[in-house]
């Protein structure tokens, strides 16, 4: 048994993928030094030709990774901060994602993007604190947000093995999570939700680090006789609608807690689908950042815009009033 941190799980997934498949290679800024954590020690072990420190040219090296993928490799890019994805939206969405369809199935682009530190970290302010997974899910790019170290390991392995582009968001607020693990860790298929805690009264869909907040609230509400089912979608695109449906058939009540902007967010999609397809006992609720939020610097302001356990507790009570 060992004590596995989230960052170490990502590191182990990258190391195992590099060791098992010679077509896997890594690109990114400061990955030789291992500044962000997941690539620590990998350049020493696998060499500078497979673990490539890139200049600060996100569009350039993302396009390079697309070309390398078209030539048969399985590149992984580490982006230190989520905002870099805005720079490379063209390369990821307009090029990598569209190649398969546009070429009539001739080309596949097995490219993985890893963002180890998405969402807010105290003090990183407006341009380093977004959680833009909804943008990629909206465009149909496979999008993964693991909440735990074992999920981080297993989903990153599946992302790298997948023939399509996948973006893996590792929430900054989950990087401190640790887990006891034994033996080799399994790959976890994309598109499968995880029921972290079964319940019968309310389904709480929690994304990323908020799974842990939701579990804390669920434990607390048990004392009040309320049974909360905590569903972690793990993959936001493709979303595991069957698991959501099975949970809602049981509970008939839905609260989504999602640390991204409200309008057109993944929470909106989950609510819309639930309303369209299931008979809900109560109007569903979602807890998100405000519409179009820009996180301010001061800690009090930053926290004020992020979903909280208190808001979740109130929302659960609200859907139970019906």
């Amino acid at each position: 048994m060992s004590w596995l941190s989230y960052t170490k799980a990502l590191n182990r997934a990258l190391a195992d993928a590099l060791a098992e498949d010679p077509s896997v290679c890594l690109f990114g800024e400061d990955i030789g030094a291992g500044l962000a954590g997941p690539t620590l020690g990998l350049q020493k072990r696998f060499g500078t030709s497979r673990v490539v420190d890139t200049p600060l040219s996100e569009q350039g090296f993302t396009g390079v990774a697309v070309g390398a993928a078209l030539a048969g490799l399985r590149p992984v890019i580490e982006f230190q901060i989520p905002a870099l994805l805005f720079l490379v939206f063209e390369q990821l969405v307009n090029q990598a994602h569209k190649f398969s369809l546009m070429t009539g199935g001739q080309a596949s682009v097995p490219l993985t993007c890893l963002v180890p530190g998405s969402g807010s970290r105290d003090g990183w302010a407006g341009q380093h604190s977004d959680h833009p997974y909804g943008l990629f899910a909206h465009m149909g790019v496979k999008t993964v947000v693991p909440a735990t170290p074992t999920d981080a390991y297993g989903l990153l392995r599946s992302a790298i093995a997948d023939p399509d582009p996948v973006v893996v968001f590792a929430p900054a607020a989950a990087l401190g999570v640790r887990e006891d693990v034994t033996g080799p860790l399994p790959a976890i298929p994309l598109g499968q939700a995880r029921i972290h805690r079964p319940g019968t009264d309310v389904t709480v869909v929690a994304v990323g680090h908020l799974v842990h907040e939701a579990l804390a609230v669920a434990r607390e509400l048990t004392e009040q006789g309320i049974s909360v089912e905590v569903l972690d979608p793990r993959t936001l695109y493709p979303f595991d609608w069957d698991s959501l449906g099975a949970s809602l058939e049981k509970t008939g009540r839905l609260v989504v807690i999602d640390d991204s902007n409200r309008s057109c967010g993944i929470g909106a999609e989950i609510l819309a689908t639930a309303a369209e397809q299931y008979r809900l006992t109560a109007p569903p609720r979602r807890i998100t950042r405000p519409d179009g939020a820009v996180l301010p610097f001061a800690r009090e302001l930053d926290r004020a815009l992020q979903p909280s356990g208190d808001q979740l507790r109130h929302a659960v009570h609200a859907v139970l009033k019906h």
Binding site: V64, G67, P75
Partner: peptide
């Protein structure tokens, strides 16, 4: 792709990094 033609492209300049990546591979 069978002839090494990685595609015409609708975005001006977009093929350049793709070419560098294929050359790197």
């Amino acid at each position: 792709l069978s002839l090494g033609i990685l595609g015409a492209n609708g975005i001006v300049g977009a093929g350049a990094p793709i070419a560098v990546g294929a050359a790197w591979a």
